[in-house]
């Protein structure tokens, strides 16, 4: 299978600091790629470069055969790349439904005529999306359906993550769904959330997912292939067993043994 996403020579410098250093990475269609590495190794930066938040200092990103290197976040989203954020960037004062519809923005009718003047048509349109969002939420946690119009700020951390997941999924992105979860949940919750992510892939189209996770157990269960980053460079890659057995990975995580 051809790789869906390819980064070549990807470099991102912040002043004197090189957060990504000549990185080569590929993600194959339909796989769950685990991205691991110690804190500060450049995982989040990679997501930010992939989604157009940062413009890379050098290198090239190809997605589905097209060069997306200097695309704006909006252009990149339109090609079907959706993401979640390390510190879940939900709009806490907006309702659960509102947050999911933000992910659906590009499917919504945004002209004044439809939104302001033709209210009847708008309401029908709204009811369709409301039912769709309710259906997504019901599959994750039925109690979220009744709280669909409450502010996201009222929800527990795992429910917020679920909302964030739904926001990334609602547009049925073609690809790499990029996940950067972790913070603020217990181990059990993290595991549960990952199962939901993998389950959501089973529904017909096999989404490609790039997953950042610190829990090695989660990586073992959820991913088919892993890439280990260290200081913005690829340390090694392979399946889970191969990667954890690699002495360089152990060294990066645990530090070099004193001789």
């Amino acid at each position: 299978m051809n790789p869906l996403l390819i980064c070549t020579g990807l470099t991102m410098r912040f002043g004197g600091l090189t957060a990504l250093d000549n990185l080569y990475l590929e993600a194959r269609e339909g796989e769950v790629l685990g991205l691991v590495g110690p804190n500060g190794s450049g995982k989040t930066t990679l997501f930010n470069v992939l989604t157009g938040i940062y413009r890379p200092s050098a290198g090239k990103i190809t997605f589905a055969g097209e060069n997306i290197t200097s695309g704006t976040p909006q252009e990149i989203h339109r090609r079907g790349i959706a993401r979640t954020f390390q510190r879940s960037r939900l709009c806490l004062d907006l309702s659960v439904f509102d947050n999911i519809m933000i992910g659906n923005h590009t499917a919504l009718r945004l002209d004044f005529f439809h939104n302001i003047l033709r209210r009847r048509a708008f309401c029908r349109d709204y009811e369709l999306w409301r039912d769709k969002a309710a259906e997504m939420l019901r599959a994750l946690n039925p109690s979220l359906v009744s709280r669909m119009f409450r502010p996201v700020g009222d929800l527990s951390m795992i429910d917020r993550r679920r909302v964030e997941n739904s926001r990334a999924l609602v547009r049925r992105p073609r690809h790499p769904r990029l996940h950067d979860p972790s913070a603020g949940m217990t181990h059990d919750e993290t595991r549960q959330l990952m199962d939901e992510i993998t389950a959501s892939r089973m529904g017909g189209d096999r989404l490609t997912v790039i997953l950042i996770e610190h829990e090695m157990e989660v990586i073992r269960r959820s991913t088919s292939h892993c890439v280990v980053l260290n200081f913005g460079r690829k340390l090694c890659e392979g399946d889970y067993a191969g990667v954890v057995a690699d002495p360089r990975v152990q060294e990066a995580y645990l530090g070099k043994e004193l001789e």
Binding site: T51, G52, I53, T72, P73, Q74, H77, R78, A82, R83, F85, R89, L90, C91, L92, D93, L94, I102, G103, H105, T106, R167, R171
Partner: peptide, 12 residues
Amino acid sequence: SDEVASACFGIH
């Protein structure tokens, strides 16, 4: 509420 997140969902 969040320009960066909005941009990532295609909002201009």
